[in-house]
Design a binder for these strands. Structure first.
Lengths: 305, 305
DNA sequence: AATATGTTTATTATTATTAAAGACAGTTGA
DNA sequence: TCAACTGTCTTTAATAATAATAAACATATT
C-alpha cells in the first residue's frame, strides 16, 4: 500500500532507528523512559515518539500498555527503517546554484526550468522557488510576467555594478579600520596576514593557485571591522562571484596574483600608517585592479553584453 | 460539481468575457478570426482560446465546426463568467506587509504564521513563503530550523545598521553628484526641489505634514545619479522604513521637519558650490539627524532592544 | 506553400493531504 | 495531592497531486 506521502517522514524514521539503538542498550524486560523524556532526548515532538512506540509495539519489540513500555527483544537489521531520499536545504542550494551558473557559463537570458533544476539539484521545487525569489533581490534572476524565472546575470554590466558597490562598501571598511586603536585585535590579524602574503610571494612561481583563498581571507578581515548585517549579506554574494571567476580566469594568472599580493601588502602598510587617505588610495588601486580582472574574465568567457 | 481547482482559471475567464464583447461587435452569422489571430489579439495561448471557443459552442453563442466559427447570437449578461477572487502578487505584498509590521508595531521575535497571514493578506501561502525568503536577505525575517519564520526587525540595532548603511550609500551618491557637470539634468531638478523646499518653509506651521513625501523625493533625486541595481534595491527598503516611522513619530514633528528642510537646503547649496567636502559634511549632518529621528521614533514606540 | 486546426507534452500555480508540533485535559502513581 | 505522564485534538508547514496554461508537434485545408 503505497500512499502519497505529502511530507517526508524523515524525522519519524530517524527517531525510530535511534529508538532501536536505545532499546538495544537495555536488557530485555527493562522499562523505557516516558514519552516526554524520549522526545526531549531525541529532539523531536511527542507525536513522533508516540508513532515510533506504536510501531515498536506492532513489531513486538516492546509491549506498550499505557505508560508501561517493556522491552521484549533486541532489534535485528531488518527492523531498521529506510528513510526517503534526503533533500537539500536552501543553504546548500545557494553555492551549488551559483557554482552551476558560473562553471557551466549559463548565458544571461536563460529560462530557468524549476521542475528540471529541482531534480538536478535534488531539492523540492518550492525550495528553488524561494531561492530564486531571494536571488531576485540581487538582480541575478527575475520573475517572468506569467510564471517562471529568467537568469539575468552575470553580464558585464552586472560585474561593473557589483564591483562599484563592492568598492563603496570596502572603502568604508578601510576608513573605519584606519581609525581603530592599535590594541584592536584586527591589527594582529593583519600582521599574520602580511606574513602569509610575504610567504606566498616567496613561492609564487609554484603556488600561485593558493592566492584565491588568501584573497578571500584578506577581504573578509578588512570587512570584519564593520558590524552591519547588510554589508555582511552582500559580502557573501561578492565573494562568491569574484572568487569563482578568478578560479576560471587563467590568463596571466601568476602575474595577476603576484600584483594583487603586492597591492594587498601596500594596503596593509598604508593601514598601519593610520593615514586614512593613503589607505583609501591603496584600497582604490587594488579594487580597480580587481574590477578589471573580473571584467576581463567575463570577456574571455563568451557572452558579455 | 465542484472539483479542486489547482490553478486559478482567471486567464480563461477573462479571455472568455473578452471574446463575448468581441462577438457582440459582429453581426450574427459572421465568421470569427482564426485561433491564432484571437490568441495573439487577447495575449493568451491558443489553449485558452480553444477552451473558450468550445464553451461558446456549448452555450450556442457560436457554431464551431472545424475552422468555421459562425456567430449564432449576441451575448446576454448571464453569459458572462465570474472569475475567482484575484490574489495579490508579490509586489503588492511587499508594501502591505511592511505596512502591517510598522503600523501594528509587531514586536521582534514574533513567529509569523504563514497560513494565517496568507488569509489576512489574501495571497497564496507559497507567495508569502517566497516573499519571506527574499526578505531574509535584508535580515528582516529569518527561517526557523524546522520550518516557519520569525520576524527579526525592527530593533534599535536594525535601525542603527540600516542608517549607517544608508549613510555609506548616500555619501557616495553625494560625492558623485558634486562632480557632475553643470549641464547635467540633475541640477535643474535640484533647483526645482529647492523651490519646493522654500515654498514649504513659508507655510510650515500648517503644512508640516507635507514634508515626508518631499523628503522621499529629495533623497530619490540625490541617489538617482548612481545607476547601480544594488543601490536601488536597498533604496526601496530604506525609503519604506524611514518614511513609515516618520509618519508615526509625532513628537516635535513641526520642528523636526523644519530643521530637516534647512538641512536639505544647506546640502543643495553645498552641492551647487561643487565643493565635495562641504557637500559631504552637509549630507553627514542631515543623515545623522535622520538617524536620531528614526531611533527616537523606535524608542517612543515600546519595544526596542 | 502557407496557414489553420487537432493533439500531445511540459511546466507552472494552487489545492489536498500527510507529518509533525504543540496544546489541553484527563489519568496515574509516588 | 500534585507532579508527571498519557490520550486526544488542533494547528501548521512540507510535499504530492492536479488543473490551467503554454508551447511544440503533427495533420489538414485552402
Amino acid at each position: 500500500m503505497i500512499r502519497p506521502m505529502a511530507r517526508t517522514n524523515t524525522r519519524f524514521v530517524e527517531a525510530y532507528n535511534e529508538l532501536l539503538s536505545l532499546c538495544d542498550q537495555l536488557e530485555v524486560g527493562a522499562y523505557l523512559p516516558s514519552e516526554n523524556a524520549l522526545a526531549s532526548q531525541l529532539g523531536v515532538s511527542r507525536t513522533v515518539i508516540r508513532s515510533a512506540l506504536t510501531r515498536l509495539d506492532d513489531c513486538s519489540i516492546i509491549a506498550l500498555d499505557g505508560r508501561e513500555k517493556i522491552l521484549r527483544r533486541h532489534s535485528t537489521e531488518d527492523d531498521r527503517l529506510e528513510g526517503p531520499p534526503v533533500l537539500l536545504g536552501i543553504e546548500e542550494l545557494e553555492s551549488r546554484f551559483l557554482d552551476w551558473v558560473l562553471r557551466m557559463d549559463v548565458p544571461p537570458g536563460t529560462v530557468l526550468n524549476v521542475a528540471q533544476l529541482s531534480k538536478d539539484f535534488s531539492v523540492a521545487t518550492h525550495t528553488l522557488q524561494e531561492f530564486f525569489s531571494s536571488l531576485s533581490r540581487f538582480g541575478i534572476v527575475v520573475r517572468r510576467p506569467r510564471g517562471g524565472w529568467v537568469l539575468l546575470g552575470f553580464t558585464k554590466n552586472y560585474a561593473v555594478e557589483l564591483s562599484d558597490f563592492r568598492t563603496v562598501l570596502e572603502l568604508n571598511s578601510v576608513r573605519h579600520l584606519a581609525a581603530l586603536p592599535m590594541d584592536h585585535e584586527v591589527w594582529a590579524r593583519l600582521d599574520s596576514l602580511e606574513q602569509e602574503h610575504l610567504d606566498l610571494l616567496q613561492r609564487i612561481d609554484n603556488d600561485f593557485h593558493d592566492f584565491s583563498p588568501l584573497d578571500e581571507k584578506f577581504h573578509a578581515v578588512i570587512n570584519s571591522v564593520v558590524t552591519n548585517r547588510f554589508v555582511k549579506e552582500f559580502q557573501k554574494i561578492i565573494s562568491l562571484v569574484f572568487h569563482y571567476h578568478f578560479q576560471w580566469n587563467k590568463t596571466h594568472e601568476r602575474e595577476r596574483n603576484e600584483d594583487a599580493i603586492r597591492e594587498h601588502l601596500a594596503l596593509i602598510e598604508a593601514l598601519r600608517s593610520r593615514d586614512a587617505d593613503k589607505a583609501e588610495a591603496a584600497a582604490r588601486r587594488h579594487l580597480a585592479t580587481s574590477k578589471q580582472t573580473l571584467l576581463s574574465s567575463l570577456e574571455t568567457n563568451s557572452h558579455a553584453t
